[in-house]
């Protein structure tokens, strides 16, 4: 069972490029990302490349440049690495059976105890999904089942794509608590800037037009500003199709915390 030693980077992308056949522009452009045993949120608008980034780490999209290493191994040559999990629905479409029958299947695939997943489903008041197949669930239920599958069975690294989409407020709060307490490295994608305040202490990266900027810290969010053009001493420079922007600390054109989305902030300054 391959897994990286403690202290070793669990995720590493170097100059990662992904261009889908026939696409006018790359989905990912020169992404560099390193994650050790820590938690990171990637914030970006729909279509910015967040899901493609996660799929690249899972080996589910063909890369057109750069390297991807997961749990200290090349993703193209990894097998049986049960320590990595994700909430992407498409990876759970293995057999058409009710969720109740799939619980022991997924537990066996990950080498875990099915009771753990049943208890989590019960905690999130999802007992009634056990008799249903995945496609019979509501969008929010599907998302939650994927989330709970991802965080069950003692993962070392969890890749979560928009884990709060269509999830009701009460369960969102419960999920936030579970994610904060999770003893695993986490890479979490979201387009919701307002969620960030729940994840103090986590790393933060911004995704825009397939490029990744950061890392910053979620705790710094109140102090981050976006400024048009280049600024000496900036934390990062964002080169985009709308121009160049600088991310600065404590002073700048617009405070990040005031934005509802990164795109809205950039477009307001452009």
């Amino acid at each position: 069972m391959p897994s990286s030693a403690p202290g070793v980077d669990v995720l590493e992308a170097r100059q990662l490029e992904v261009t889908f056949p026939g696409a006018a522009a790359p989905a990912l452009r020169g992404v560099d990302l390193t994650l050790g045993d820590e938690k990171m949120i990637v914030v970006g608008a729909n279509g910015s490349g967040k899901t493609t980034l996660i799929k690249s780490f899972l080996g589910l999209v063909p890369t057109t440049g750069g390297t991807v290493r997961v749990l200290d191994r090349d993703v193209d040559h990894i097998h049986g690495a049960v320590g990595l999990s994700t909430n992407l629905a498409e990876v759970y479409r293995l057999i058409s059976l009710p969720i109740g029958d799939l619980v022991p299947v997924f537990a066996a695939l990950k080498g875990g105890d099915p009771r753990e997943l049943r208890e989590r489903l019960h905690e999130f008041e999802l007992d009634d999904v056990l008799g249903k197949r995945m496609h019979e669930l509501s969008t929010g239920q599907q998302k939650l089942v994927g989330d709970l599958l991802a965080i069950s069975f003692g993962p070392r690294l969890v890749l979560l794509d928009e884990p709060f989409d269509n999830v009701d407020f009460a369960r969102r709060r419960r999920l936030v608590g579970r994610l904060r307490d999770l003893s695993a490295a986490v890479l979490l994608n979201t387009h919701e800037l307002e969620l960030l305040s729940n994840f103090g202490g986590w790393k933060l990266a911004l995704m825009f037009e397939g490029r990744l900027f950061g890392p910053f810290r979620v705790d710094e969010l109140d102090r981050l500003f976006l400024t048009r053009g280049t600024r000496p001493g900036a934390l990062a420079e964002m080169t985009t199709s709308l121009g160049t922007f600088s991310i600065t600390l404590d002073a700048g054109d617009r405070p990040m915390k005031s934005a509802t989305s990164l795109n809205a902030l950039v477009e307001a300054l452009a």
Binding site: L58, G59, L60, V75, I78, H79, G80, A81, V82, L84, S85, T86, L88, E90, V91, Y92, R93, L94, A108, L109, K110, G111
Partner: peptide
């Protein structure tokens, strides 16, 4: 699901 399972499950 198969591509994922062959990499990240048993």
């Amino acid at each position: 699901a198969l591509a994922y399972s062959f990499r990240f499950t048993r």
